[in-house]
């Protein structure tokens, strides 16, 4: 059996047959006073694109978002739970939840059910305690606070690009255009990422959603081939 075949076998044993997966590019970049989260829009079942305009950016609370990757079913259920828990937390305390708390809740769910889940997510947002912050939660359920985060199958293609171009304390527009650029590059190289780019910029003033159609991406295959 070749390495590729083993990889294939492995992929299929983890993801149930016919299960919808968000082979994905997601990222979260903090900037001065907030965070921008970004995702492509491809949802696939094997080689079939089940949805070409899906929304992988989910609002967990007023100022906290989650970028989903992995099984669509699992990550939808997880974000529903965390949304519900954070709502309860707010009612209990009379405060806005922190990104740290949101990430912790997500981590607990993923870690405690890691045998049955296929979910890698980024939790990012703004809160009055820590300002803008970014957490990534891996498949195994470890939770890491990072200067910026990428995830999904497309992320490997843009690691170098972001290492080189990411700077702390960028402006909101700088962060957003870098996120779009990185996402477009990943969508070009990764077969499981594509469609449109969705971004959300989160600051203390609120959230600002943005959509970039597939015909107006900052980078595409035509630039290479």
């Amino acid at each position: 059996m070749t390495d590729l075949q083993i990889l294939h076998e492995h992929t299929y044993t983890i993801l149930k047959e016919g299960e919808v997966s968000t082979g994905t590019t997601i990222l979260a970049l903090p900037f001065d006073g907030g965070v921008v989260v970004c995702a492509d829009s491809r949802t696939s079942t094997g080689s079939y694109v089940a949805n070409r305009v899906s929304d992988k950016l989910v609002q967990l609370s007023e100022y906290i978002y989650c970028c989903r990757s992995g099984s669509a079913a699992d990550t939808q259920a997880l974000t529903d739970y965390v949304h519900y828990f954070l709502n309860q937390w707010s009612l209990d305390t009379g405060r806005q939840p922190t990104v740290k708390t949101a990430a912790h809740l997500m981590r607990r769910l993923i870690y405690n059910n890691k045998d049955q889940l296929q979910a890698g997510v980024i939790v990012a947002g703004w809160d009055p305690v820590d300002g803008g912050s970014v957490y990534t939660i891996t498949l195994g359920g470890s939770c890491l606070e990072l200067p910026f985060a990428t995830g999904g199958s497309g992320s490997i293609f843009i690691a170098g690009l972001l290492d080189s171009e990411f700077r702390p304390n960028m402006s909101k527009d700088e962060a957003r255009s870098l996120a779009k650029k990185a996402c477009a590059h990943a969508m070009t190289r990764d077969g499981s990422s594509g469609g449109v780019i969705r971004t959300v910029a989160i600051t203390s003033e609120g959230v600002d959603r943005d959509y970039t159609g597939g015909n107006e991406l900052p980078f595409g295959p035509s630039a290479v081939w």
Binding site: W89, D92, T93, T98, T101, A103, H104, R107, R108
Partner: peptide, 11 residues
């Protein structure tokens, strides 16, 4: 354990 932060004294 649940929330990863200290309980607010009021709560």
């Amino acid at each position: 354990d649940q929330y990863g932060s200290k309980i607010p004294p009021d709560v």
